[in-house]
Simulated assay, not measured.
Amino acid sequence: MAVSEKTRKIIWCEAGGRCAICRAQVVTPGTDCDDPSVFGEEAHIVARSKGGPRAGLLDDASIDSHTNMVLLCSKHHKQIDDQPGHFTADRLCEIKAKHAAWMRSLGETTPGRLKLVPDPEFPQPRILKLITRGNPLWNMIKSSVTFEYALPDGLPEEDEDLILEFLDAVQDYCDIAAELHSVRENRDAEKGLQSYLSKLDERNFLVGAFVRHMLLIDGSGQEGTPWPMLRVEVQPASHATITDGSGRPYPDEPPSAGTPDEKQSA
């Protein structure tokens, strides 16, 4: 069972986007040509695999609970797994609790400190990129921390079921993207997304998406943590306005899922 999106949000918010051991922010700023780099990892206190560190102390239903997860930088994630004799389950629970208490103490002087705001370093997107292939959507998923969506009302049940199944798949891929490392795993994810895009195209639905660059700020005056948010929308082709990259309406028919996705969907 994968870690759910809700669980990931709880872990990151409780930790304030910081490693529970060194308390360093675990997302680097982006550059003028690259997205921010995320090196925070949701680490299991009790391992999921039977041969992993501190394994065998929890039932399967509790393994992926937020109570069994702690946010760490990649360096300290490796350390706790390499040194399970020192980093016992009890010690990690204590580290997590002390870090959460420290984060709450910051909030005592700045109530309501944790919130998402637009990152001024990036222009905020206003036009959805038309998605017709699995690869670009998968790349957006991998670069995002969280996910939001929109779909039309009043659809036939069969169409709504397909769209909801697609959006659930996007959320599932968001949950596990950080755990997929091999080329084959990434390619399988692209193919899974492509399958849904092709089915939606057959029913004359368009999929649009963009990544909104946000900052998670805590009111302490320190630099915010980059928090890229993926937005995905599904709309009937008859209701969408197809534009070029500058936002001008495109006169031709919208592309199908088998053609390159260079145009935009407003």
Score class of each variant (00 low, 15 high):
Ile141Thr: 07
Glu121Phe: 03
Ala100Pro: 03
Leu137Asn: 04
Ile131Asp: 01
Ala101Ser: 09
Leu114Lys: 06
Val117Tyr: 03
Lys115Ile: 09
Asn139Met: 11
Trp102Lys: 04
Thr132Asp: 01
Trp102Ile: 00
His99Pro: 00
Gly107Val: 04
Glu108Ser: 14
Val117Arg: 14
Leu116Gly: 08
His99Met: 01
Thr109Glu: 11
Ser105Ala: 14
His99Ser: 07
Ser143Asn: 02
Gln124Asp: 12
Leu130Asn: 04
Thr110Tyr: 14
Val117Gln: 10
Pro136Tyr: 04
Leu137Trp: 03
Pro136Ala: 05
Trp138Lys: 03
Lys115Trp: 02
Pro136Glu: 01
Leu130Ile: 07
Asn135Thr: 08
Asn135Ala: 12
Gln124Glu: 15
Trp138Glu: 04
Gln124Phe: 13
Leu128Tyr: 05
Lys115Ser: 09
Lys129Val: 00
Pro136Arg: 01
Arg133Lys: 14
Pro120Arg: 06
Val117Asn: 10
Val117Met: 07
Met103Trp: 01
Gly134Trp: 04
Asn139Ile: 02
Ser144Met: 01
Pro111Ala: 15
Leu130His: 08
Ser144Ala: 13
Thr110Arg: 10
Met103Ala: 12
Pro111Tyr: 15
Leu116His: 09
Ser144Gln: 07
Arg133Val: 08
Gly112Met: 08
Lys115Glu: 11
Arg104Phe: 11
Ser144Leu: 06
Leu116Val: 12
Leu106Pro: 04
Gln124Met: 15
Pro120Asp: 07
Arg133Ser: 05
Glu121Ala: 15
Phe122Thr: 00
Thr110Ser: 13
Asp119Lys: 09
Ala101Trp: 02
Pro125Leu: 08
Thr132Met: 07
Arg133Pro: 01
Leu116Pro: 02
Ser105Tyr: 10
Pro125Glu: 09
Gln124Leu: 13
Ile127Glu: 13
Arg126Asn: 09
Ser143Gly: 05
Val117Glu: 07
Thr109Phe: 13
Met140Ile: 05
Met103Gly: 00
Leu106Val: 10
Lys142Phe: 03
Val117Ser: 09
Glu121Met: 11
Val117Leu: 11
Val145Gly: 03
Asn139Phe: 06
Trp138Phe: 09
Ile141Val: 13
Val117Phe: 03
Pro118Thr: 12
Lys98Cys: 04
Val145Lys: 08
Met140Ala: 13
Ile131Thr: 01
Ser105Thr: 10
Asn135Gly: 06
Lys115His: 12
Asn135Met: 02
Thr109Met: 12
Pro125Lys: 02
Glu108Val: 10
Val145Thr: 08
Trp138Ile: 00
Met140His: 05
Gln124Cys: 12
Lys129Ala: 02
Glu121Pro: 00
Thr109Ala: 13
Ser144Val: 08
Val117Cys: 12
Ile127Met: 14
Leu128Ser: 10
Leu116Lys: 04
Ile131Arg: 04
His99Thr: 00
Gly107Arg: 07
Arg104Glu: 12
Arg133Asp: 06
Pro111Ile: 10
Thr109Gln: 13
